[in-house]
């Protein structure tokens, strides 16, 4: 496959079967390998889509500074695209994210502003919104509320899956900005409405939730609950256990959030087996494990890994 440039190669990722983790010939699991994108994560799709949309509507012009709250992956994707197109990029990132993500952002040319660990991504969003107010000439693409984020999956991720696997019955994705699930969900509601859309959301430790007041929580502006059918909260223990099963049984080395997504996918598979229904369950491998090696999730016992992840934004 030949492309004119790196950004032209975003998307069209492989869909691979999981012969060993699938419970039977009638209930099959399929992994959409989004780590095969240029910077190694699904976020390349959203980043490119948001930049192209902002260029098209005139809000992003040559020499602009882009500002974005990110736990890392979207920032890395934006940095890759921005540098090639001549934009400056400032990322607001929680300080309790892995060191690899910080190093990669810097390497791709982004400037990083740290937000306090307590509060996690909520806090990064708050800090970024304040900076945007103080610097009105900066362009905040704002992945949590930018329709172009979801559109990337409506136009790319979802039709690719349907083309490769017309018999799909379930789609399982991670819930962060909600962009993947909203775009894929909307596509299937329009084109194959019997496909069930399942969300896996990471459940962090006390530090992330500790200071949250129940009146000032955060729901991404993109989120539309009518586009999903069920939503699972997955803690670090199950995520780590599954991410290890994925490498042990299928040879796929994925990031920790993918473990959470696989956990929800396997729950759907178990339900289908129990009710005697056929199922083709597609789940997202959001990124590879490389950026998370320093978290300690990939060595020692599950107990040790779980303990090390406490207080980290592991997904």
């Amino acid at each position: 496959m030949r492309f004119d440039s790196l950004v032209d190669s975003v998307g069209h990722t492989p869909l691979v079967g999981l012969p060993n983790l699938s419970p039977s010939d009638d209930v099959r699991l399929w992994a959409k390998l989004e780590d095969r994108n240029p910077t190694g994560s699904i976020k390349d799709r959203a980043a490119l889509s948001m930049i192209l949309a902002a260029e098209a509507d005139g809000s992003l012009t040559p020499g602009c500074t882009i500002l974005e709250p990110t736990s890392g992956n979207t920032g890395i994707s934006l940095a890759m695209v921005a540098r090639q197109r001549g934009y400056r990029l400032i990322c607001v990132m929680p300080e309790n994210t892995s060191t690899e993500r910080r190093q990669l952002l810097t390497m791709w040319g982004a400037e990083v502003i740290s937000s306090p660990a307590a509060g996690g991504s909520n806090e990064a969003v708050r800090v970024a919104k304040r900076l945007a107010e103080e610097n009105p000439d900066w362009v905040m693409l704002y992945q949590y509320g930018n329709r172009a984020n979801a559109d990337a999956h409506y136009r790319g991720t979802a039709p690719e899956i349907l083309e490769d696997l017309p018999s799909i019955t379930h789609f399982v994705g991670g819930l962060g900005t909600t962009g993947t699930l909203m775009g894929v969900g909307r596509f299937f509601r329009d084109h194959k409405p019997d496909v069930r859309i399942v969300a896996a959301e990471p459940r962090y430790g006390e530090l992330v939730y500790g200071l949250r007041n129940l009146d000032e929580g955060f729901v991404p502006e993109l989120y539309d609950a009518s586009l999903i059918d069920s939503r699972f909260s997955v803690g670090p223990r199950d995520a780590v256990r599954r991410v290890r099963e994925l490498i042990d049984h299928e040879g796929i080395f994925a990031g920790i959030s993918t473990g959470a997504i696989l956990h929800a996918a396997l729950a759907q598979a178990a339900k289908a087996v129990k009710s005697g229904e056929r199922a083709d369950i597609v789940f997202v491998v959001a990124d590879g494990g490389w950026k998370y090696l320093s978290t300690g999730a990939y060595e020692g016992t599950i107990d040790e890994a779980e303990e090390r992840l406490e207080g980290q934004l592991w997904a």
Binding site: G72, S121, Y144, G176
Partner: peptide
């Protein structure tokens, strides 16, 4: 749990 921003965003 309180609703928070999450995921590998």
């Amino acid at each position: 749990l309180p609703a928070v921003a999450g995921g590998a965003a």
